[in-house]
C-alpha cells in the first residue's frame, strides 16, 4: 500500500526470520567481530581467486541464514541479492549453487536495503514466501575492479573508505517468529550533486540519503526522534557528517544519540581505514550482527535502515561522469 508520494507500507509486516553475516579477518578484529556468524581466517577463503572467495562468502551467508531458520533451500521461493562485481557474479554463482529462483540486483552498496524492500513486497503481496535477501562485497575484488592491483603502491586519501570483505543474508516470511518486522519503506531517487572524486564516496551518496530520508519523513509524518536509531549504510566519516549537516538545514536534525552509520561500526581507529567502511557487505553484515539482535532483544523498538550506494563504474568515472548516489530506506520494528 502506498502512503504519501513515495512510501510503501507493508500491510502484513513481513518478518525477518533469521539472518547471518560472514566477514573477513579484518572485520572480525573490529568491534562487531564476535557478533558475526563466521569470520574467515583467510580472505581467499581457501579458493583460487578472490572472486571465488566472494562467491563462497555470499553462499555461506545464505546457507547459515537458512540453517538458523531451519528452512531447506528448496523451500525458499526467491533469492534477491547482489554484490559489487561486474555482472554481480558472486550473487549469480551463489544462486546457481543454491538453486533458488533468483532476481539479481545491482544497487552498489545500497543492495541490502534494495533486496529487503523488494523481498518485503514479494512476501507482503503473497507472491513468494519465504524470500532470501542477501548482499556481499570483497575488498580485493573491489580494489582490482574500481582501483588498483593489491600490490600497487599508492596512498589513500583521508576521505577514502575501505570496502568490507563480508556478506549478509536475511530470510523473510509471513509466518513464524521473527527477529524483526518490515513496516514501511521508501525507494530512493538517484541524486547527483556533482561530486566526481571517486575517493570521496561518502560525499557522493550523502545527498541521496538526505533526499530519501526527507521524503520518507514527509510521507509518514514522522521525524528522526520517532525512531530509536536512524542507520545509514556506508556514508563513512565524511558522508555522515555531510548528511547530518544537510538534515539540520532541512529542520530534521539527526543527533549523535539517534544516528548511526554502519561504515563507522565495523572497524576501529587502528585499522588505517580513513573515513570508514563501505561496500554492499558493510550494511548487510551490520544489519545481521548489530541491528537485528538489538531489535530482537527489545533494546531498540523501531529503526530506519538506509543503505546508500554510489552508482559509478570505472568507465563512467573515466569518462568524466559525476557520481550518482542512491539510498533506500526500510523501517524495521521489533516483534
Amino acid at each position: 500500500m502506498r502512503t504519501g508520494r513515495s512510501t510503501l507500507v507493508f500491510e502484513h509486516r513481513p518478518r525477518i526470520l533469521s539472518s547471518a553475516a560472514v566477514t573477513g579477518p579484518k572485520e572480525g578484529r573490529g568491534p562487531l567481530g564476535r557478533d558475526f556468524d563466521l569470520v574467515l581466517d583467510d580472505p581467499a577463503f581457501g579458493e583460487k581467486s578472490f572472486e571465488q572467495a566472494e562467491r563462497k562468502m555470499f553462499q555461506t551467508a545464505c546457507e547459515i541464514c537458512l540453517k538458523k531458520a531451519k528452512k531447506p533451500a528448496e523451500k525458499v521461493q526467491a533469492l534477491l541479492g547482489g554484490d559489487l562485481e561486474n555482472q554481480i557474479m558472486a550473487a549469480s554463482l551463489s544462486a546457481r549453487a543454491l538453486e533458488i529462483p533468483f532476481l539479481g540486483l545491482y544497487g552498489a552498496c545500497s543492495t541490502m536495503a534494495e533486496s529487503l524492500i523488494l523481498g518485503s513486497i514479494l512476501t507482503d503481496g503473497g507472491f513468494a514466501d519465504p524470500v532470501l535477501c542477501a548482499a556481499g562485497s570483497h575488498y580485493a575484488t573491489a580494489e582490482r575492479q574500481y582501483r588498483f592491483p593489491l600490490e600497487y603502491g599508492n596512498q589513500r586519501t583521508p576521505a577514502a573508505q575501505w570496502t568490507v570483505t563480508g556478506a549478509g543474508a536475511c530470510l523473510l516470511s509471513q509466518t513464524g517468529r521473527g527477529l524483526a518486522r518490515a513496516v514501511s519503506a521508501c525507494v530512493g531517487r538517484v541524486v547527483d550533486l556533482g561530486i566526481s572524486d571517486v575517493n570521496n564516496m561518502g560525499a557522493a551518496m550523502a545527498p541521496a540519503a538526505a533526499d530519501t530520508l526527507l521524503r520518507f519523513f514527509a510521507d509518514t509524518g514522522t521525524a528522526p526522534r520517532d525512531y530509536d536509531r536512524v542507520i545509514s549504510g556506508d556514508l563513512g566519516g565524511v558522508g555522515s557528517h555531510l548528511l547530518k549537516e544537510m538534515m539540520r538545514k532541512e529542520g530534521q536534525p539527526l543527533t549523535d544519540e539517534m544516528y548511526l552509520d554502519c561504515g563507522l561500526c565495523i572497524f576501529d581507529g587502528r585499522d588505517d581505514v580513513h573515513a570508514g567502511a563501505s561496500g554492499c557487505g558493510c550494511s548487510a553484515a551490520v544489519l545481521s550482527a548489530l541491528i537485528l539482535p538489538k531489535l530482537r532483544s527489545g533494546k531498540w523498538k523501531r529503526v530506519l535502515f538506509m543503505a546508500t550506494g554510489a552508482l559509478l563504474s570505472p568507465t563512467s568515472a573515466q569518462q568524466g561522469e559525476t557520481i550518482p548516489g542512491v539510498a533506500h530506506v526500510i523501517c524495521l520494528e521489533g516483534e
Binding site: 570521496n200 560525499a203 565524511v238
Partner: peptide, 22 residues
C-alpha cells in the same frame, strides 16, 4: 546553485591530506 553550495560544504567537511608531512 545547489551543486555549488554542496561543493562548498564538501570542501569544508572533507579532511585534508597533510601536505607538509607528505
Amino acid at each position: 546553485a545547489l551543486i555549488r553550495e554542496y561543493a562548498q560544504l564538501v570542501r569544508r567537511l572533507t579532511p585534508k591530506s597533510q601536505l607538509g608531512l607528505g
